[in-house]
Computed example of a mutant assay.
Amino acid sequence: MQFEHSPRLRAAYPDLVAGVVQAAGITATVDVAARTAAHLAQARRRLAGGAESGFPEIQAWRRAYAAMGLRPTRYRCAAEALLRRLRLDGELPRVHPLVDLCNAISAAYAIPVAALDLDRVDGDLVVRPAHGDEAYLSFAGDTEHPEPGEVTFVDSAGRAHARRWTNRQSGWSAVREGTSSVLIVAEALHPGGEPAVTRLVADLVTELTEGWSAPTATAVLTAAAPRFRTPAAADDDRGQAVSPGSR
């Protein structure tokens, strides 16, 4: 399995940096309450200094949404939506231990983090502008089609696993009770985002290792190293770490 952003998208957003973590052995029985609390405490400390809309990480996503013709105050990236909910409600909802952990880390770093059930992804996965014929399954069970040009995660079967670039994940590949193998993707658009994404990936690996004893493969993708392949597919691709827990 290969993951990458399309050349067109990278050309439009030259500051794009993505962290990728593949992990196996995920279950829904791990207690992550203490782990999520630590990351949410970090997010709260930052929110104490001002609303999330002023964070440079969020401002970069707002500019991207505006460039895509979306109203940033109507369509918020996943990280902004989580931070806003944390600021207004004081807590985030519990969904699944892995999702809860990813949400807490996303809030701590103000960087969108998506977790996909890898067994529900067909072939390769590319983040690209939609053609308009991709199939997206909502959480309500309805099939939708992204608007042409809308940025989405698309697999080899033409299935859309997100809409509006980190705004809305598909119900098809959402992590659920029976999920075992996952692909976690964190994306930053702000200038100089690579160090933050690198730390985020390291935090994810630590949590996955300590919580699930999960074997992992990781990468930090940039314009110079834009592609991730699962170790079984290719052990020597640039931009990929093939040893468990390494970068």
Results as ranks from 00 to 15, higher is better:
His5Ser: 12
Ser6Leu: 08
Ala11Trp: 06
Tyr13Trp: 13
Tyr13Lys: 01
Leu16Pro: 03
Val17His: 11
Gly19Val: 03
Gln22Ser: 10
Ala28Ile: 06
Thr29Lys: 03
Ala33Met: 09
Ala34Gly: 15
Ala34Leu: 00
Arg35Thr: 14
Ala37Lys: 08
Ala38Met: 00
Leu40Lys: 03
Gln42Gly: 05
Arg44Met: 04
Leu47Ile: 02
Ala48Thr: 00
Gly50Asn: 07
Ser53Arg: 14
Pro56Val: 07
Ile58Arg: 02
Ala60Leu: 01
Arg63Cys: 05
Tyr65Asn: 08
Tyr65Gln: 05
Ala67Leu: 05
Gly69Asp: 02
Leu70Phe: 08
Arg71Cys: 00
Pro72Trp: 12
Tyr75Leu: 06
Arg76Gly: 05
Arg76Thr: 11
Arg76Phe: 01
Cys77Phe: 04
Ala79Tyr: 08
Ala79Gly: 03
Leu82Trp: 01
Asp89Ser: 03
Gly90Lys: 06
Glu91Leu: 01
Pro93Lys: 02
Ser106Ile: 03
Ser106Phe: 09
Ile111Met: 02
Val113Cys: 09
Leu116Trp: 15
Val121Trp: 02
Asp122Ile: 12
Val126Trp: 10
Val127Arg: 04
Arg128Asn: 09
Ala130Ser: 04
Ala130Gly: 00
Glu134Arg: 02
Glu134Ser: 00
Glu134Thr: 04
Ala135Pro: 06
Tyr136Ile: 01
Ala140Gln: 10
His145Asp: 11
Glu147Thr: 12
Pro148Asp: 14
Glu150Pro: 13
Val151Thr: 10
Val151Ala: 03
Thr152Val: 15
Thr152Met: 11
Thr152Phe: 05
Phe153Cys: 05
Ala157Glu: 01
Gly158Phe: 02
Gly158His: 05
Gly158Tyr: 07
Ala160Asp: 10
Asn167Arg: 14
Gly171Cys: 07
Trp172His: 15
Trp172Asp: 13
Gly178Phe: 12
Ser181Ile: 03
Leu183Thr: 11
Ala186His: 04
Glu187Gln: 10
Pro191Trp: 06
Gly192Gln: 07
Ala196Val: 11
Thr198Lys: 06
Arg199Phe: 03
Asp203Gln: 10
Leu204Ser: 03
Glu207Arg: 04
Gly211Thr: 04
Ala214Arg: 02
Ala217Leu: 07
Thr218Lys: 02
Thr218Glu: 01
Val220Lys: 05
Ala224Ser: 08
Ala224Gly: 06
Pro226Leu: 11
Pro226Lys: 11
Arg227Glu: 14
Phe228Met: 15
Phe228Glu: 09
Pro231Tyr: 08
Ala233Val: 13
Asp236Tyr: 11
Asp237Trp: 12
Arg238Gly: 05
Gly239Lys: 07
Ala241Lys: 01
Val242Arg: 09
Ser243Gln: 13
Gly245Phe: 06
Arg247Thr: 14
Arg247Tyr: 13
